[in-house]
């Protein structure tokens, strides 16, 4: 629309856009370890039913996704792949780090092959603690992310250079 890029977006319009973004999010599930099953229970099981939050799981590729759930242990061998897939996602993009391993290394804090926290390679918006977190905890994390999106100033986010994390 040009409004967003110019940074002159009216407040009510921001709110409207944020609200519509908030309730129509494609989630790319990056299932790595134990947490992947709890994520599967949250996304694919009728008991937890993530779609009632306006989140649509299982997109065909990360290029269609709005946010990414990294669930499970990220190893040093896997880290470049996580980074690469995150780079393929279109901006605005968000990351939920699910479980202790993705947060900080978890029980493998002293391992020789585990990356101690996915935030070393990509920026994380919401951390969900637990080993593994219950599906309800992941849903709570998604609600927190939605609140964050609701209060976001899009003009601020899109002004200037794109976000680059070294």
């Amino acid at each position: 629309m040009g409004l967003v890029e110019s940074g002159k977006i009216p407040k009510p319009l921001t709110k409207l856009l944020n609200m519509s973004r908030r309730y129509s999010m494609w989630v790319y599930q990056w299932g790595l370890a134990c947490c992947a099953i709890e994520m599967g229970a949250a996304f694919a099981s009728p008991r937890y039913d993530v779609m009632r939050l306006g989140v649509i799981p299982l997109p065909a590729s990360p290029r269609q996704a709005d946010f990414l759930v990294v669930s499970g242990t990220v190893t040093d061998k896997m880290a470049p792949v996580v980074r690469r897939l995150w780079e393929q996602m279109p901006d605005p993009k968000y990351v939920i780090s699910m479980g202790s391993c993705a947060n900080c290394g978890g029980p493998y804090w002293d391992s020789y092959s585990v990356t101690k926290g996915v935030d070393q390679i990509i920026p994380v918006d919401v951390y969900v603690p637990g080993c593994p977190p219950r599906p309800e905890a992941l849903l709570e994390g998604i609600v927190l992310l939605q609140e964050r999106i609701m209060n976001e100033d899009m003009a601020e986010r899109w002004k200037g250079d794109p976000i680059v994390v070294e």
């Binding site: 040093d76 391992s111 020789y112 092959s113 101690k116």
Partner: peptide
């Protein structure tokens, strides 16, 4: 089979240190 190709050392040798520890 497990580790990246450029990994140095042999982890299960007793003299391989766990650096975090």
């Amino acid at each position: 089979i497990y580790l990246p190709g450029d990994f140095e050392g042999h982890p299960l040798r007793k003299d391989y240190p766990l650096l975090s520890r």
